[in-house]
């Protein structure tokens, strides 16, 4: 049952190319998925601002439109306000933990350098080893990069907090029991019977096409994330044949083969949305002109719009918080590796320092 431990060993050039390829792939996936998500957020924003689909369902003028009731249920199911409040409360701890690891690492370098300098002052040119300051430049540069990243993360945390404070009340309202939610929505006398009018049917058809489009995006996202391809064979063959490895060209052509079609489908779904939303805007204008507009109806519509966008913000805030939590946890792992690098080099320098010190004191 012999397993060759060296089976997966590849030349350094191939190993590094695999790393860079996986980074390119991750960036491609993030761009495609990010584009679709942003476009969907835009669509939800436009619909919420037009009070759609609620306006089409809001016949009696005093019961909760079906889409709003569904949105309320989904927020409660996703954990409601408590779940995001808890994640928001955790952010500062995650940030502090990362900062501490980084600060400790850099402090190790500083302390060792201070001692190195003191001994250099004491022994002058007899202290003939490379100054620690020079040796630690790359690590300190890396540390500086981590500091910038943490500063950007702090800004991202603030964006999430601002979004939460802007929509928190309305999200809380969505989480209230149905009767309280209903009581909080101003009622208006029943909408004129617009049911039969053609514009309502056009709007309904457009909205269902938009729903279809959004569902298709979920499928595309799933397919994109399911794509796997082992580049090692390609890299090994290229290295063997030409003796040199053009990672960029090999990776880009492979990534195009794997994701080119998806890129087309993503661009297509963006265009589809633009067309559909254009038609929605036109039909909505006609719909609003038919609908009676009085203060009660307008007040009711304003609250329904806020409730719809509160749901969308809840979904966005939750996604931001998941992303933030993952970011901090991933960064912790990377910072621990950085800390190890710092402690390894400091340990080596200390050992070397003590030997040099012993030697100098003896001679």
């Amino acid at each position: 049952k012999f397993t060759d431990l060296f089976e997966k060993m590849v030349p350094m050039a191939v190993q590094q190319s695999m790393s860079i390829y996986s980074q390119r792939k991750a960036e491609t996936v993030n761009r495609l998925v990010g584009t679709m998500r942003e476009t969907t957020n835009l669509c939800n924003g436009v619909l919420a601002s037009l009070n759609l689909p609620a306006a089409l369902e809001d016949l009696s003028g005093d019961s909760i439109p079906q889409s709003i009731a569904e949105k309320a249920r989904s927020v409660v199911q996703l954990g409601g306000l408590q779940s995001i409040e808890q994640l928001i409360k955790d952010l500062p701890e995650l940030l502090t933990r990362n900062r501490e690891i980084l600060d400790e690492s850099l402090k190790m370098l500083d302390n060792e350098e201070t001692t190195d300098n003191e001994l250099r002052t004491k022994f002058n040119q007899r202290w003939n080893r490379t100054p620690s300051g020079d040796l630690y430049k790359p690590l300190r540069a890396e540390g500086g990069n981590f500091r910038d990243i943490l500063d950007k993360a702090v800004q991202a945390d603030q964006v999430v907090r601002d979004r939460y404070s802007a929509h928190g009340d309305m999200i809380a309202l969505l989480c209230r029991p149905e009767d309280e939610l209903n009581a909080a929505i101003p009622s208006a006398n029943p909408t004129k019977t617009l049911q039969g009018s053609e514009v309502v049917n056009v709007l309904r058809s457009l909205l269902s096409q938009l729903d279809e489009m959004k569902k298709e995006r979920e499928t595309i996202e799933g397919e994109i994330k399911a794509v796997t391809f082992d580049m090692s064979a390609t890299f090994l063959m290229a290295l063997a044949q030409d003796g040199v490895l053009n990672e960029e060209q090999l990776s880009l052509s492979q990534l195009d083969q794997l994701y080119g079609a998806y890129n087309q489908r993503v661009q297509a779904t963006v265009r589809t949305q633009e067309e559909l939303l254009g038609q929605v805007q036109t039909s909505h204008q006609e719909f609003s002109s038919l609908k009676q507009s009085n203060t009660e109806a307008n007040q009711r519509e304003e609250v329904l719009k806020k409730l719809a966008s509160a749901h969308d913000s809840y979904v966005e805030i939750s996604s931001n918080l998941r992303e933030g939590t993952k970011f901090y946890n991933d960064l912790t792992e990377i910072l621990l590796k950085f800390q190890n690098k710092c402690s390894d080099i400091v340990f080596a320098r200390k050992t070397e320092r003590e030997e040099l010190l012993k030697y100098l004191q003896q001679s």
């Binding site: 590094q16 790393s19 960036e27 990069n145 950007k152 991202a156 931001n320």
Partner: peptide
């Protein structure tokens, strides 16, 4: 995405 990407930090660099 809202938070910085860590992708390029995951590329393990060899210390010379």
């Amino acid at each position: 995405s809202l938070y910085p990407s860590l992708e390029d930090l995951k590329v393990d660099k060899v210390i010379r």
